[in-house]
């Protein structure tokens, strides 16, 4: 058995004295692990860093075996992301999320969005909004998608400013009026990409995704949301506040 694909490195574990078990998130096969012989060598260490993109050649005698990877760098990203703590926390959080996906199950859309997020993690203006969108997309890929296209009560697609925590469906202003205190605010940029992202919107977006990630992904696994997310969110919000002072009306998309 063998295949070739593009992949993002999302995990590396030592194996024995010289090898490593590498976890890739590939474009056609989703999360896939394999053994890299000599993975702890001086030559391979710069390649086997989280966030790097690789050309992967996987082969094994049987499909269900761990198999062996031959990897070649296609985009070295780790060194750039190491410069800023927010980028590093974002990378750790991105990899932690991707590691929760089922093994060997293709998620081509998730792969594409993960690559966009990884590419922009060092961009202070866009990384927060992209991550919030990615978290929504991740929930959707794992079967917990939010229905944000129309109001759950009236069917309207106007003034959708709230989300029901029970159903994960959008609620318009009119229908939300009596229940506002119990609903989660929905920032406009999550529904319409043409909207500029403000600091408050990003705070609301992260609060929204945090609620559903906790309830649907981490809660059932009896895990807390990793610290890397909190560190990334506060870093991204801080950078956005600094950015909005220097470029008040900038649209990040």
């Amino acid at each position: 058995m063998e295949w070739r694909d593009q992949g993002l490195i999302i995990g590396v574990r030592r194996h024995g004295e010289t090898s490593a078990i590498v976890e890739l998130f590939t474009s056609e096969r989703g999360r896939h692990t394999g053994l890299v012989r000599g993975g702890r060598s001086r030559k391979m260490q710069p390649l086997l860093q989280l966030g790097n993109s690789v050309h992967a050649h996987w082969h094994s005698r049987l499909d269900e075996h761990l198999g062996t990877y031959n990897l070649e760098m296609s985009r070295s990203r780790a060194a750039l992301l190491m410069e800023s703590p927010t980028s590093l926390h974002g990378l750790q959080w991105l990899c932690q999320l991707l590691r929760l996906s089922s093994e060997r199950e293709p998620h081509p859309v998730l792969y594409q969005t993960a690559m966009i997020v990884a590419e922009h993690l060092s961009d202070a203006a866009t990384c927060g909004a992209l991550m919030a969108r990615f978290e929504l997309g991740f929930l959707s890929e794992l079967g917990f998608g939010l229905a944000l296209e129309e109001c759950a009560v009236t069917g309207s697609n106007q003034a959708l400013n709230f989300v029901s925590p029970k159903t994960g469906r959008a609620v318009c202003d009119e229908a939300a009026e009596p229940y506002k205190a119990r609903l989660l605010p929905l920032p406009k940029f999550l529904v319409d990409t043409t909207f500029a992202v403000e600091h408050d919107d990003l705070t609301k977006a992260f609060a929204l995704t945090c609620f559903f990630l906790e309830r649907n992904i981490f809660g059932p696994r009896a895990q807390a949301i990793p610290d890397a997310r909190g560190a990334f969110v506060s870093g991204a919000l801080e950078k956005m506040a600094e950015n909005s002072l220097t470029h008040p009306q900038q649209n990040v998309f």
Partner: peptide
């Protein structure tokens, strides 16, 4: 972070080169 002593630029990965340049 950057070019090790005895290192040839041709054999360095892009990440190390970009760190060395910065």
């Amino acid at each position: 972070h950057g070019v090790p002593v005895g290192g040839e630029l041709d054999y360095l990965d892009e990440g190390t080169l970009s760190a060395a340049m910065r």
